[in-house]
């Protein structure tokens, strides 16, 4: 039952990214939490999700730009390391999540080209104002993205399961290095994301004030 629910959850994340709702179901933190709960290890889901979320904050899906798909990738990364001692595993999960997220993202333009074929095949009926053609195109394309999301979810989860089943675990020193690299990359991503979307004076001041407050709070607690 759990594998099926995991697949369903990761598929839903893929659909949320572009086609349905576009709420937060495709965000790494949300996907990680759901996956962690399904695997009875919410703590790991939370940590993997939070780490990948920092990377996702560097992604702005403006216009028709290309972006990664972190949904199934986060589920797979969580699956790979759930139950493991997290401090060595977090780096591994981050690397796996980033690689799978990039691979999954490459399926989006391919799906759009499939959509374009359907639209072109119905171009005459669309220009004739045929409501049934519009509904047919819309549902067919939704089917494509459901297929894409389902396939990506299955492959990503299989990869995550493969890492888990291989029993490979980095030696503690390597694991700690990978986690440190992941944190460095996450810091890079999130600060770049915060500034790439606006570097005006006020934006700088509010971001700096936030960082200063955050450092104080982190030191205090």
């Amino acid at each position: 039952m759990t594998p099926f629910l995991l697949w369903l959850w990761a598929t839903w994340a893929g659909l949320d990214l572009v086609s349905v709702l576009q709420a937060l179901f495709s965000r790494p933190l949300v996907v990680g939490v759901g996956t962690g709960l399904l695997l009875n290890d919410p703590e790991t889901g939370l940590r993997v999700g939070a780490m990948l979320e920092l990377f996702a904050l560097d992604v702005v899906p403006v216009g028709s730009s290309r972006y990664p798909d972190f949904g199934a990738a986060t589920a797979a990364a969580t699956l790979a390391v759930a139950g493991a001692s997290w401090d060595g595993a977090l780096g591994v999960a981050t690397g796996l999540g980033l690689a799978l997220g990039w691979l999954a993202g490459t399926t989006l333009p391919a799906t759009r080209r499939l959509n374009a074929r359907v639209v072109r095949a119905h171009a005459d009926r669309l220009s004739a104002g045929d409501p049934r053609a519009i509904a047919g195109v819309q549902w067919t394309c939704l089917g494509f993205d459901a297929g894409r999301s389902g396939l990506v979810a299955a492959l990503a989860l299989a990869a995550g399961w493969g890492v888990r089943a291989s029993g490979w675990a980095p030696e503690p020193a390597l694991g700690r290095s990978l986690t440190a690299v992941a944190l460095g990359g996450a810091g890079w991503a999130v600060m770049h994301g915060a500034l790439a979307s606006g570097r005006s004076g006020p934006r700088w001041r509010w971001l700096s004030a936030g960082v200063a407050g955050g450092v104080l709070a982190a030191a205090w607690l």
Binding site: V60, V62, G63, S65, A196, G198, R199
Partner: peptide
């Protein structure tokens, strides 16, 4: 004028 122009180009190029 749309998002790609305003956010994509406007901000990085100041």
């Amino acid at each position: 004028v749309h998002g790609q122009v305003v956010i994509g180009w406007g901000r990085p190029l100041e």
